[in-house]
Simulated assay, not measured.
Amino acid sequence: MKPYKIPESVLVVIHSADLQVLLIERADKPGFWQSVTGSLDAPDEPLLTTATRELFEETGIVADGQAIVLRDWHLSNIYTIYPVWRHRYAPGVTQNTEHVFSVQVPRDIAITLSPREHVHHLWLPYLEAADRCFSPSNAEAILQLPRQTRQIR
């Protein structure tokens, strides 16, 4: 039996310098567009490690800490796990804590999706990307991009 997912995860908003946002479409839910997300592999896994791993697994992008740097927003969201995915968690677990990160990349960066998880990707202006996301916390993070990125421009 596969172990239960840990109800703590990362959200990684991938964007370009001009605030175009990369969205990926879920393989298990066509029409569900999102940023990179993923749960911790172990309760003590550092959040940056989780974000780096998930970014690579889902898009092929390597955050090397030099040219491509993940930025921890030090922002967490607690949300109710959608019923369709609740079976992945231990009985009685209904909420997840999500930690927000972002990463700025060139728009022409190669994207290699994990076909088991995602089937398409697209770049959209941040307002359109926020509207396309199925997750309210993902949409809200995208809407915060202009304010969050002012610090790194």
Rank of each mutant, 00 (worst) to 15 (best):
A63V: 05
L48R: 14
W73D: 12
A63C: 05
E54K: 15
L23W: 01
P46G: 01
D28F: 08
S35K: 00
I61G: 05
A27W: 02
D64C: 06
T49R: 13
G38T: 04
E57H: 14
L22C: 07
R71E: 14
G38F: 03
E57Q: 15
F56C: 00
T37Y: 08
T50Y: 06
A63Y: 04
V62N: 12
E58G: 00
S35Y: 05
W73T: 01
E57M: 03
F56H: 13
V36R: 07
E25C: 11
P43T: 02
A42K: 09
S39A: 11
T59C: 08
T49Q: 12
G38S: 00
G31C: 12
L40V: 04
A27L: 10
V21T: 12
V69Y: 12
I61Y: 09
K29G: 01
A51K: 01
L40F: 03
A27K: 13
G31L: 10
P30T: 09
S35T: 11
L22H: 11
G60M: 08
V36M: 01
I61K: 06
I68N: 10
D64Q: 07
A27H: 10
T52S: 15
Q20N: 13
Q34G: 00
T37I: 05
A51M: 04
A42L: 02
W73K: 09
I61C: 04
Q66W: 08
E58V: 02
G60D: 03
E54H: 14
E45G: 00
E25Y: 01
P46H: 07
H74T: 10
G31D: 11
W33H: 05
L75N: 13
H74G: 00
R53D: 12
D64Y: 02
T50L: 07
